[in-house]
Design a protein around this nucleic acid. Structure first.
Lengths: 333, 333
DNA sequence: TATATTCGTCGAACCGGTTCGATCGCTGAT
DNA sequence: ATCAGCGATCGAACCGGTTCGACGAATATA
C-alpha cells in the first residue's frame, strides 16, 4: 500500500503538504494540488485509518453494543441494527458491532482501547450494568431505551406510557370495558426492560381511571409456548371484548391463532397492538396499532451522538421520547 | 488514558520492557514483571488499539459486509450476523459491520484503509461485484454463499442441491407424484442468488428422473403479496399432493394460510421445507425440513478466515459445502 | 580461568499519518 | 523604498505502540 510518503515523493512535495492538500486545512496552490491528486490516483493511495486515528484521536467508528436475549424477537432487533449502521455511514462513521455476553467488560474493552469515538447501546435495562463503565469512559454514548439513571448519556426511546394510553383511550372510546393486556414475557420485566412496565403500568393506570377491567398476562417468547399461552389466555377470559398486545413474538403468531380458534376480528374481539412499522413487511398484521419506527429513532440517536462527539458539551444530555402514532386499521369495534 | 510510557515511568523501566512484559516475547524477570503489572493496574492502562494496529499491521477486526435486500427475510439474516460476531470474539476479533448499498466501494474502502484483517461476505450473488475489489485486497476473505468464480476466496455454504434431492427423495418414497415447488422470489434469481437455482434445478432434475410432476412457482417477499400468492398457487394446483417450500418469508406465513384454507397437514397436503434451525424459536413450523445451521456455518467461516489471516497460505482456498440434515416432523404422508 | 551463552533490559527506529512553527517569495500599503 | 501581511511549503515533533540490535551481568562450557 502506498503511504503518504510515497505520494509526497511522487509529487515532489513534503508529507505535510500532501496532508494539507487532503484535508484542505491550509491553502495549497492549484498546481501543487493537481500534482498531488494525480500522484494519489496513480499510486492508488488511501489513508491508513489506524495511523490517522492515532494522530487525530478520532477513529470514525461507533461502537454498537447489543445483547441477544433468548426471549427477544429477532426481527425487531435487526431493524435497529440496520438503521443504525445506515445512519452512521451517512455521517461518515463505521460501526463496530459488539455482542459480548459480558456487556460491562465489552464497554470497558472498546472504550479504553480507544477503538471507537462513541457508543450506542441497545436493549437498555432499568439498572443497566453497562452504564457505569460507560460513564467512566471518555467517549459519549447514546442509549436506545430508558434506564433509571440517565446521567451523562443521551437517551432516545418511544414514549411507551403514552402509547399505552393511546391504545386504552381508543378502546374505551369504542365502549370496551373488559380488556386483556398481553405484556412482554416475565423475564423482560425481571431483567429490567423498562419499556415493558412503562407500557403496562400506564395501561393499568388508565384502565383504572376509566373503570375498565384489565386482565394482564405475560407472554411467552418461544414457540410452541407462545401458541399455548395465547390460547390459554383467550380461553380464560371469554368475556373480554378487546386485546392489547405488547409482545412482538405473540403478535406475529396471533393471526394464525385467532384463525384456528375461529375468532373474527373485530366482530368477536378487538385487537390493538404496538410493533415496529416494518413488521408489516414480514408479517400480515391487520391490527390497529402504535407503530414504532426504529429507523427514525436510530437516525436520531446516531446524529445526536455524532454531534456530541464533535462537541462534547454542545448541549446538556437529553432524554428524548418519540411521540407514538396510532395507525388505525379497523381491528376494533 | 495512561500510555505505555506512563506505565514504564511508573515501573521505572523502559517502554520496550513494558511491551515485552505484555507480549511475553522476551523473558522478563519476575520482579520487573510484577512492578509493571502493578503499575498497569494502578494506572488502569489499556493498550491503544490504533497504535498497536499501526505498529503491527494487525487490527484484530474483521469486516462483515452485508446488503439488506427488500426481498429478504430479516430473521434469517440476523442469525448469521449474530453467529459471526460471537465466533469472531471467541478468537479475539471484533466485527466492523458495513451495510453500504455500494458493496464494491465498501470493500475498497475498508480494505485499502486497512481497517480490517479479513472480510466476511454474506449474501453472495452469482457474479458478485464485490469479489473483484476483494481479490485486489491484501486481506483474505470468507464468503457465506457460492459465487460463480471462487478463486482466491474461501467459500462456505449449505449444499442446496443435496438438500433439494433429500426432500424430493423423501416425497418420492412416500408415493407423491405431483408436487409444488415454491422457490424464492424471482428477484433473488435475477440478482444471482445461486442458492436459489441450485436448489430449484436439483429439485427439478431429481423430480424429472423419478417421473414426478413438479410445478415450480416463485414466492413473494412481502406481505400481503405473500398471502395472496400462496393462496393462488394452492388454488391453481388442487391435485398436487405435496409442497416443497424454499422460501423463508412464505414458510413463516404458511401455517396460518393453510389453517385459513382448512387444509390439514399431512392429510390433505404434505409439506417439506428448508429453513434455519432457529426458526422454530420464533415461528411454529411443524414441517419436515432440512434445517440449516447458520451458527455452524458462521463459526466455520470465521475460524477459517482467522487461520488464513495468520498464515495466508496454510492451505489452498477451499469451497466447503455443509451437508444438509433432514429433520422429520411428520408433515408428510 | 578464559570464553561462549543466556538472561534481562535499554535505546532507537519505525508504523503512517497530522499539526505547529518557521521560512520564503510576493503583493500591496505607506 | 520599506515593511507588514499573506500564500505556499517544509521540517520536525508527536500520536502510542512494537521490534531489532546492542550491551552488561550472570551462568554455563571448555
Amino acid at each position: 500500500m502506498a503511504t503518504i510518503g510515497d505520494v509526497a515523493r511522487e509529487a515532489g512535495v513534503s508529507r505535510s503538504t500532501v496532508s494539507y492538500a487532503l484535508s484542505g486545512k491550509r491553502t495549497i496552490s492549484r498546481e501543487t494540488r493537481e500534482r498531488i491528486e494525480s500522484a494519489i490516483s496513480r499510486l492508488g493511495f488511501t489513508v491508513n485509518a489506524g495511523a490517522r486515528a492515532l494522530a487525530t484521536s478520532e477513529t470514525m467508528v461507533l461502537g454498537l453494543l447489543l445483547q441477544f436475549h433468548e426471549d427477544e424477537f429477532p426481527p425487531a432487533m435487526l431493524q435497529y441494527i440496520y438503521a443504525i449502521s445506515q445512519a452512521a455511514r451517512e455521517v461518515g462513521y463505521d460501526i463496530l458491532m459488539v455482542t459480548d455476553s459480558d456487556g460491562p467488560a465489552a464497554v470497558r474493552r472498546i472504550t479504553q482501547s480507544n477503538m471507537v469515538d462513541g457508543i450506542i447501546l441497545l436493549d437498555i435495562a432499568h439498572d443497566d450494568p453497562r452504564l457505569a463503565p460507560l460513564r467512566a469512559a471518555r467517549q459519549p454514548a447514546a442509549l436506545i431505551g430508558l434506564p433509571r439513571d440517565t446521567e451523562g448519556v443521551d437517551v432516545f426511546d418511544l414514549d411507551f406510557g403514552e402509547a399505552a394510553r393511546l391504545l386504552v383511550d381508543q378502546l374505551y372510546g369504542l365502549g370496551h370495558r373488559e380488556v386483556i393486556l398481553l405484556a412482554p414475557p416475565r423475564h423482560v420485566f425481571e431483567r429490567g426492560g423498562a419499556y415493558a412496565w412503562r407500557f403496562r403500568d400506564a395501561a393499568m393506570e388508565r384502565a383504572a381511571r376509566y373503570g375498565i377491567t384489565l386482565y394482564t398476562y405475560y407472554g411467552e417468547s418461544q414457540q410452541p409456548a407462545i401458541d399455548r399461552s395465547l390460547n390459554a389466555i383467550l380461553d380464560a377470559r371469554p368475556t373480554a371484548t378487546a386485546l392489547i398486545v405488547h409482545n412482538d413474538a405473540s403478535i406475529a403468531a396471533l393471526p394464525r391463532i385467532l384463525q384456528e380458534r375461529g375468532t373474527v376480528v373485530p366482530d368477536d374481539l378487538s385487537v390493538v397492538s404496538l410493533f415496529p412499522r416494518d413488521f408489516g413487511r414480514s408479517f400480515q398484521l391487520p391490527y390497529t396499532a402504535v407503530e414504532t419506527s426504529p429507523d427514525t429513532l436510530a437516525r436520531e440517536a446516531v446524529q445526536h451522538l455524532v454531534r456530541r462527539i464533535i462537541d462534547p458539551d454542545y448541549a446538556p444530555p437529553i432524554v428524548k421520547f418519540v411521540e407514538p402514532e396510532l395507525t388505525v386499521r379497523g381491528s376494533t369495534a
